[in-house]
Amino acid sequence: MADASVLSFLGDVTEHGPVISLAGARKTYKTGSIEYEALRGIDLTIDAGEYVAVIGPSGSGKSTIMNILGCLDTLTSGSYLLAGDNVEDLDETELAMVRNQRIGFVFQQFHLLPSLSAWRNVELPLVYAGVHRDERRGRAVAALERVGLGDRLDNKPGQLSGGQQQRVAVARALVTEPTLILADEPTGNLDSHSTEEVLGLFDELHDTGRTIVLITHEHDVAARSRRIVQVRDGLITAQEVAA
């Protein structure tokens, strides 16, 4: 166990300084005798409170970056410091705690359980964290109200539009009060109106001090961030401050 190393991230993350620091990050996948280098030695630093979009075409390595940042995959070589802690030093229990309590995930596919109401979908991370039942409902309701769905608490996913389902997914990402939001193509399945609603939510979250990393292949979506990181063939090819 590396309990001491995980404390800074599971505790209060500093308001200044890097939340994410990748150095010489490489990721190689092997299938039999075939090797594919998805990341080819990238350096990336994201400070607390930043709103960064990682953009690139299919196969560029941006989804691999997402998986590494979310502690869903590990590097082949190089280092990943999360709020100053070396992720490589954390065991599976600690990594699970980080994923559940300090990172909020939003995916292109909403990943909502169709048999559960909106608030019960939102409370799931709290169930896994062992939060008491009464507190879970209160926090789930508050999260749904925050994304404008206070009147849809008992609706199941099939009774909601695509944009509403993604807002439920955002509420679920927020319910643990994470310091870092990772969003992987969150508008990929949405129409233009719903896209604007979800991006508006990210704007609001950024305004409250959340660190947001948005993975996308759409330039107009990336332009809503404050910094754009362009990725191609496993390398960062350019970085620019969004207009």
Rank of each mutant, 00 (worst) to 15 (best):
E37C: 06
R40P: 00
R40E: 03
I42H: 01
D43K: 06
L44C: 01
L44G: 00
I46T: 10
D47A: 11
D47M: 10
V52I: 11
V52S: 00
V52D: 00
V52A: 01
A53K: 11
V54I: 15
V54E: 04
I55R: 03
S58W: 09
S58V: 08
G59W: 12
G59L: 07
S60F: 09
G61V: 07
G61T: 07
G61H: 03
K62R: 08
T64I: 09
T64P: 01
I65S: 05
I65P: 02
I65E: 07
M66A: 13
N67R: 15
I68Y: 00
L69I: 12
L72H: 03
D73H: 05
L75A: 02
T76D: 00
G78N: 06
G78T: 09
G78W: 00
S79A: 09
L81N: 10
L82G: 00
A83V: 12
A83S: 15
D85K: 12
N86S: 15
N86G: 07
N86W: 08
V87G: 06
V87W: 13
E88N: 14
D89F: 05
D91P: 02
T93Q: 12
L95V: 11
M97H: 15
Q101D: 12
Q101L: 09
Q101T: 05
I103P: 02
I103D: 00
G104W: 02
G104Y: 02
F105W: 00
F105D: 00
V106A: 04
Q108N: 06
Q108M: 13
Q108I: 10
Q109I: 11
L112S: 00
L113A: 06
P114F: 02
S115K: 13
S117H: 09
S117Q: 13
S117F: 10
W119G: 11
W119K: 15
R120D: 15
R120C: 01
R120F: 02
E123H: 02
P125L: 12
Y128E: 06
A129N: 09
A129T: 13
A129S: 11
V131K: 14
H132T: 15
H132W: 05
E135D: 15
E135N: 09
R137H: 14
R137F: 07
G138N: 15
V141T: 15
A142S: 09
A143M: 06
E145P: 08
R146W: 02
R146T: 12
V147I: 02
G148H: 14
G148F: 11
L149F: 01
L149S: 02
D151S: 14
R152D: 07
L153V: 03
L153K: 10
N155C: 10
Q159V: 08
S161H: 04
G162W: 14
G163H: 04
G163V: 12
Q165K: 10
V168T: 10
V168M: 10
V168Y: 09
V168I: 10
V168L: 12
A169F: 09
A169T: 13
V170S: 11
V170I: 15
